[in-house]
């Protein structure tokens, strides 16, 4: 008996840690268990819709019209990659998939290049009107793209850019810039002034400082921006809906025609939607840290 009491006393920290009875400790454990269960349920809620889409994309048309995707648990043999094979073989859909790349890649590269150049000037070169310009960019962050659809459509029409990939890219660049500049300027401005001045003292020109000091130091921010912008453009529908024609349409727009008969086109739509999701999902899972940072940094778009 004495021994046990002795042991118990040793276990209690001297510094007056919260003295909790066995009951409350059990309650806390249970409460934590309940929280875990609740959150697990929430997570399942979030996953089920995507999982359903995935399964639907792996079942053929007749299976999808006859029974729900959840019957796959009893009949796993129904799964097939035929939908994907068919979709990839479909020239128009495959072309639209490639178009999505042709749009997203240049729109991302251009935005990153232009925004990092502009952000450098806005954070480290002093010129009259710098404050005003920065504030204007911050203001443009939330500009609805609807404001520009009609005028730019006219403008593109005049320059022969309407219905071209170049036009879609340019529009994305324009509306990607405010956020990109906002994100990069914030990061650039956070670089210690000493570092920039050290480079200046070491004999570097503005261009050299930008290229050899600021860009390498800002790699994380640039990675965030790149991923964010790429996914933003990849996932766009509205811009392409207005500015792309049949040959330059990305996958979202190409699949849109199938929406009319949703019930009978589930196999096609689910497959197409999942095909369009593969790239973002992969990018997200690999670079999720940068993507999340990008979204948090923006928090306005």
């Amino acid at each position: 008996m004495t021994l046990v009491a002795e042991e118990v006393r040793i276990e209690v920290p001297v510094s007056g840690a919260p003295k909790r009875g066995v009951l409350s400790r059990v309650a806390a454990r249970l409460g934590n268990g309940a929280i875990q269960l609740l959150l697990a349920l929430v997570a399942v809620f979030w996953l089920v819709p995507v999982f359903g889409l995935l399964i639907a994309s792996l079942r053929d048309e007749s299976a999808n019209t006859a029974t729900g995707w959840w019957t796959v648990f009893t009949k796993p043999a129904e799964l097939t990659l035929a939908n994907y094979a068919e979709l990839v073989a479909n020239q128009a859909v495959w072309q639209s998939f490639l178009n999505t790349f042709y749009i997203a890649v240049p729109a991302t590269v251009l935005v990153v290049v232009m925004a990092s150049l502009a952000s450098y000037a806005l954070s480290w070169i002093e010129f009259p009107g710098r404050e005003t310009l920065t504030v204007v960019v911050v203001g443009l962050l939330v500009m609805p793209i609807q404001v520009a659809l009609i005028p730019v459509a006219k403008l593109f029409g005049a320059f022969g850019l309407f219905g071209t990939i170049t036009g879609v890219v340019l529009f994305h660049v324009a509306f990607g810039l405010p956020f990109a500049i906002f994100l990069l300027r914030n990061f650039f401005a956070g670089i210690p002034r000493d570092l920039i001045e050290a480079a200046r003292m070491d004999g570097a020109t503005e261009w050299v400082i930008f290229k050899r000091v600021v860009l390498p130091v800002a790699k994380p921010a640039i990675a965030s921006l790149t991923i964010f912008q790429f996914l933003w453009v990849w996932n766009d529908m509205l811009v392409a809906l207005v500015f792309a024609d049949q040959d330059s349409a990305p996958i979202t727009v190409a699949l849109r025609a199938q929406l009319r008969q949703f019930g009978t086109n589930i196999d096609l739509l689910a497959t197409g939607a999942f095909l369009s999701m593969i790239v973002p999902l992969a990018v997200f899972l690999v670079f999720q840290k940068y993507f999340v940072q990008g979204v948090l940094a923006g928090s306005t778009k």
């Binding site: 210690p192 000493d194 070491d202 050299v208 050899r212 000091v213």
Partner: peptide, 26 residues
């Protein structure tokens, strides 16, 4: 004129050699 800064202002992405060599590079 060159300068030593209070918090040293070494380029975090470069090695010591490249830090020292930076003024010669530019």
């Amino acid at each position: 004129v060159s300068m030593v800064f209070q918090d040293f202002a070494l380029y975090p992405h470069l090695t010591v050699a490249d830090n020292i060599g930076f003024p010669l590079d530019v």
